[in-house]
Design a binder for these strands. Structure first.
Lengths: 218, 218, 218, 218
DNA sequence: CATGAATGAGTCTTCATTCAT
DNA sequence: AATGAATGAAGACTCATTCAT
């Protein structure tokens, strides 16, 4: 309360610069979700951010760079979400896996706007080595975490015949596929249904650790 | 006179017209795979097809229409593949399900070029109602077929606690997610590995009908 | 007279293409003379040519290329003028040198519009390697021709103490310097005065072949 | 109080201001030589001067004004060089003419950087009345001085048939033309060669006052 | 005085579409 | 039916200039 907000702190300039960049990245996310990558112009982005047209080339060198940094932002944000979810979760592997799965279908990760942007970038990845690289790196990290947790479950639950890497790939694939459904057919599937399908997958693989949801109503 | 001139046969014009359209659609697929939707120009497409620049607007009204028809072409092609696979398959639901799963990871469906184009369209779908509609319709048809087969299996195998719709969504999601992996990280996963993951999913859901693959080498 | 102008000659397309390029180069010369290199926009050029904005990038790849080809055009044109002048001139070296000097101050070479463009390019040459190279090549050719003629005069006239290369450099330098005066102070010097100064230079160097002009009125 | 603080001395501000202006003009000369007039931005100039971007519009009103003042600076500098050269020279017209000719090919006048800037301005002069006026005024002053010296030589040497104005124009033209060669083809001509050609010109015009250089090696 | 982030008019360039041939 | 030169709207990017700090 009595604390003075240092408006003229020594590094206020740098802070402001970073804030501008974030502001532009947020606007870019909005625009890509609304208009797609092909349909998003610099004018769209700067108007959404309520800033002047020339500002993007001041803070990013080019449109390409802005888009790339937007993808990096999403990637970093997701990684942070995962790290926080794992930190807050209980100590068992099952609890951690649950936390990750819950995260993947929580509003802050799984809203149509963000999903649209992810798929927009994935859609361009084949023809954009930079996008491809960022996405692949992202995948790898997630798979490593999940595979590790799977190993712990296998040891703890006495499962046989489970390959952690394949399981991790499968779980991530299922999640991504469900996200696609949420993006494309929001009237036929919602976050809760998707989460249930995901947990059911965990339940059939690790019956000793997860129970099948019997919910038919969502 | 009595000579048959196939080139001027009554409906040869229509055939030629259709051939041109196909030629352009194939070129469009090549170009989108190579350059993405945003990066594909009319000049790219017509050069790839070895045709003149003006021809697209002659056979399709516009670039938008060409892209839309390209998506429709892919959609129809996939539907035809499914129909043929089901026709050739044995009469049991398990055999039919197997045929579909094999199809999804067969070279003619699951090559990186085509996957790239599918994801390119999915990436734009949120901001393009026409794309969205075509994709959603596609999904619906596939889900209906799979759900129906699932019902048969449930009846036949005495499974309880399986919701056919959710299973169909899950199987499709898993497939789409695995396609994404094949597109993004072709060095870490290949068609056979993906197919095995898919079949393992079938095996844990329907243990009486499918066996887990025990292959560790692919 | 009875000859039919083949409007649809087999190579009419190519002819047309070349004509467009010339049209644009002519317009570029006009614009550079009027507005300078820095002040000439693509819109200026295409408006002057009464063509559409996009046409430059159709026939030349870029503004830079257009300017470069404009310089090449001027260079080639001057070379052709020289060749023709030498062809038409008498057979003696003095006659040929006279023809070149007359050419340099004739209306078709020495009008303020063209001089302005030459100096515009020379002004940018230091910072534009391509311009520099074209101009240097141009200089070299002219010097070689003049030096050769000078050698003939030396032999013929029994001059001693004349270095052909230095003379050629001097004559060209004088011409270029006079052009600068014609460009900058057209009220104080005109083509005839400049030509007389040039011929006086020839006369003092080769008194046996050239007479000093005694004109005081121009 | 009684202490003299040079930094806050009565006119220190004006001095500092002038120093900044000079600093910026020097930087402008560097940049124009390196990048040309078209290619020189305010950012280039201020970076070269190691000053902040906004400072130009503080000390000069605009880019145009900065460039204009740069040309004026060069013009004034040259005039000062001439005045000093004439002051230091002997009392005869021949000595004074020699001093001017030496100056024109001395390192402080005749280095490629400065020549590049002169030609850059001359190249824009046709389309920039202000540049044209400054350059023309410059020429006029130089011509007047040289014509006056020429008159003295004529009287002193008993030459006939020499028009001082034409001679002055010719000498200046030769100098400017040689500068162009030094700028464009530095590998084929150097300052000494150019000076010799200039002095040879003096020698053939005023054989009683100047001797032909017989140097063949430079 | 000095700074440099911000602005936005101005430019080059691209490219879908048209249309004379 | 086919061609490809031409068009011009639209977009990315530059950069002189402003102004809050």
């Amino acid at each position: 309360m009595a604390q003075i907000e240092p408006k003229t702190a020594p590094n206020s300039r740098i802070v402001a610069k970073d804030r501008r960049r974030q502001q532009l990245i947020k606007a870019t996310i909005n625009c890509i979700a609304k208009r797609g990558i092909a349909g998003t112009t610099m004018a769209d982005v700067t108007q959404d951010a309520d800033l002047s047209l020339g500002i993007v080339n001041l803070h990013f060198q080019s449109k390409d760079k802005l888009f790339e940094e937007t993808l990096l932002y999403l990637s970093d944000e997701y990684e942070t979400f995962c790290a926080n979810a794992l930190k807050k979760a209980g100590h068992t592997a099952a609890e951690k896996l649950t936390a990750l799965a819950e995260l993947d279908f929580s509003p802050k990760v799984c809203d149509r706007k963000k999903l649209a942007v992810w798929f927009a970038f994935w859609g361009e990845a084949k023809s954009r080595p930079t996008y491809l690289q960022i996405c692949a790196e992202n995948d790898r990290k997630y798979n490593d975490v999940v595979a590790k947790l799977c190993e712990d479950l296998v040891v703890d639950g006495g499962y046989t015949d489970i390959r952690p890497q394949a399981f991790a790939i499968g779980l991530a694939a299922l999640t991504n596929g469900l996200w696609l459904d949420l993006l494309m057919t929001p009237n036929e599937i919602n976050r809760n249904m998707a989460r249930d399908i995901s947990f059911d997958y965990l339940a059939v693989i690790f019956p000793n650790h997860f129970n099948k949801s019997n919910r038919r109503e969502n």
